[in-house]
């Protein structure tokens, strides 16, 4: 099987022109891509700066809760999104990240990882998140020596082995189902009750090699050179227990990638960007969508919808506030 992801279209040269963009979208996941799509259809001069196309979708093996698809691979869905944007000829600057963002008067200056700068009237931050870590002793030491944050990448190393999955949400549930094809035994350790969808739980309960410890907190990863096991605390029975295991897959949610704008806008305690119902941040002209925002439900369809909302609000802002202010300045 081949997962071809290269575009045959010429590399965008739009990003080397010295111009003032209507909108620069930062991030190539569902929120950023859909934001750019809606903006383009409104006639805005929009470009995307993206480390990759698909974002966290690429870490998802199967998607079965996106309306219109009973089941589609995460990457295949990202290809469909990408194709849609290529069809609309939205320029995408791939393999690039934004190092810094500044607001000067009304407009924004973005400095990219390659040192180039872009100027834009508005910016949409859709930078998603990175996997949250447990923060327990041994986790860092045995990272990639048994501890993994990417099931689709690393599951093959655990063929016929015993693995532990930390987490109880949909990502954890999907990791369990992915790992079930490789591992001989899976032990789930989760600090509270399941949050995953019932359809996924039904599949997990049908497996005969899964042991589940709810209300149990992981305390330590131990081993010598490679990990040998985990220590956990059973909250209900108030006692520690040990699971001897070859691998630990950590699926406990995400940390928002809000570093770029954290000092410019309001964020909550978790570092998520606070936006109003129009996806606008506390800084005028700067919008955010998807997992980087404080909305609690991290879902593909919600991120895409937020991208759309942001683009429509940006269009309104450019037509009303932005021009009005510019006229006032004259």
């Amino acid at each position: 099987m081949l997962n071809l992801n290269i575009s045959s279209s010429p590399k965008p040269t739009a990003f080397t022109e010295d111009k003032l963009w209507d909108l620069i979208v930062v991030g190539g996941g569902p929120g950023g891509l859909n934001g750019a799509l809606y903006a383009k259809r409104k006639g805005l001069d929009v470009g995307i700066i993206a480390k990759d196309i698909g974002g966290q979708l690429l870490n998802t093996t199967d998607v079965d809760n996106y309306l219109g698809y009973t089941m589609i691979e995460g990457e295949a869905l990202s290809h469909k999104f990408h194709d849609h944007l290529k069809h609309l000829e939205v320029p995408i600057h791939q393999d690039k990240t934004v190092k810094s963002l500044q607001k000067n008067n009304q407009d924004f200056t973005l400095t990219l990882s390659d040192g180039n700068t872009l100027r834009a009237k508005t910016v949409l931050i859709a930078t998603g998140g990175v996997p949250r870590k447990l923060g327990i002793p041994g986790e860092k030491e045995f990272s990639n020596k048994g501890v993994s944050y990417c099931t689709t990448c690393d599951a093959p190393f655990f063929k016929d082995k015993h693995v532990v999955v930390a987490g109880g949400g949909n990502s954890a549930a999907e990791a369990i189902l992915d790992l079930a094809q490789w591992a001989s035994k899976i032990t789930v350790v989760h600090r509270s009750q399941w949050r995953a969808d019932q359809v996924l739980l039904d599949k997990i309960h049908a497996l005969d090699n899964v042991t589940i410890h709810l209300e149990s907190q992981l305390k330590e990863v131990f081993g010598h050179n490679v990990m040998r096991g985990v220590k956990a605390y059973d909250k209900v029975n108030d006692k520690d227990f040990i699971v001897e295991t070859d691998g630990l897959f950590i699926e406990i949610g995400n940390i928002p990638n809000s570093e770029l704008i954290a000092s410019l806008v309001e964020t909550n305690d978790a570092g998520e960007v606070i936006v109003n119902p129009n996806q606008q941040t506390s800084l005028k002209g700067l919008y955010a969508a998807g997992d980087v925002t404080a909305q609690p439900h991290k879902q593909i369809i919600i991120s895409t919808a937020e991208g759309a909302k942001a683009a429509l609000s940006i269009n309104q802002y450019l037509n009303n506030d932005y021009i009005l202010k510019e006229n006032n300045n004259v």
Partner: peptide
């Protein structure tokens, strides 16, 4: 690399 790893080609 593994063939199922989306971060590996980079």
């Amino acid at each position: 690399i593994t063939l199922s790893c989306p971060h590996c080609p980079g």
